[in-house]
């Protein structure tokens, strides 16, 4: 198995480029769904020890809506989408046409379902772009949903990877809107074995070799 510590900067750039392609497509799809312009930040590629959680959305106890997918196909892995609590109301208003009462502590089935659907569209658009770009097959599971502390969600997702590898490759992208406080954070966590597959596919596409 590939030592994640030996990922060279060229390879990180390549992964960032993959993430950009996916995120760009996902932003377009979500922008059409909710009818606002979506901004995409430059994706961040990092190799972390599974216990060192990133906390992009505030402290470990910040409540977020998490939409989680297992990814199957040529490059298996996981994707977790986190919507900040401030985003939930505006997103639901745009999708369902009605403003939820106050800050949503609990969501109705239809509200949770709407957020899962948003996740589905974002995840599928992201994966489609990746799959086309790398000429491979990538399939998401059905979404799982939870409204809870960001650290409890992320640590659970990372713990599942940790059984096989002490480190994880984390590809993060942030989506936001102008004018409305909507922030969606996307974590893509390819399995350790998927890294080689992805870099190889990129090498074939671009003619650049990543022998590191």
């Amino acid at each position: 198995m590939r030592d994640l510590n030996k990922l060279v900067s060229l390879e990180k750039d390549a992964l960032r480029e993959i993430a950009n392609v996916g995120a760009g497509n996902a932003a377009t799809a979500v922008s059409q769904l909710i009818g606002t312009v979506i901004q995409v930040d430059v994706p961040k590629v990092s190799i972390i020890r599974v216990q060192d959680l990133p906390l992009p959305l505030g402290g470990p106890e910040t409540v977020v809506a998490g939409i989680y997918f297992k990814l199957f196909g040529d490059a298996p892995g996981k994707m977790l989408l986190c919507l900040s609590q401030d985003s939930i109301g505006p997103v639901l208003e745009l999708m369902l046409g009605e403003k939820p009462a106050q800050a949503p502590a609990r969501l109705s089935d239809i509200q949770a379902s709407a957020l899962k659907e948003l996740g589905n569209i974002l995840c599928s658009a992201y994966l489609n772009a990746l799959a086309r770009f790398m000429d491979m097959q990538l399939l998401p599971s059905v979404p799982a949903f939870a409204l809870d502390m960001v650290s409890s969600l992320l640590s659970t997702v990372l713990a599942e990877s940790a059984e096989l590898h002490p480190q994880a490759l984390l590809i993060e992208t942030q989506f936001s809107t102008v004018g409305r406080p909507i922030t969606i954070h996307l974590f893509l966590i390819p399995e350790a074995g998927s890294l080689n597959t992805m870099l190889q596919a990129l090498a074939e596409q671009s003619g650049v070799s990543f022998d590191g």
Binding site: V50, Q51, D52, L53, G59, P60, E61, D148, M149, V150, S151, S152, L153, L154, S155, T156, A159
Partner: peptide
């Protein structure tokens, strides 16, 4: 995460955002 700590009064211990961990 994946850490352990010990303490005596007046110090206190805390752990935030425990999911599937114990």
């Amino acid at each position: 995460m994946a850490e352990s700590m010990c303490a005596k009064p007046p110090d206190k211990l805390a752990c935030f955002g425990i999911g599937s961990c114990v």
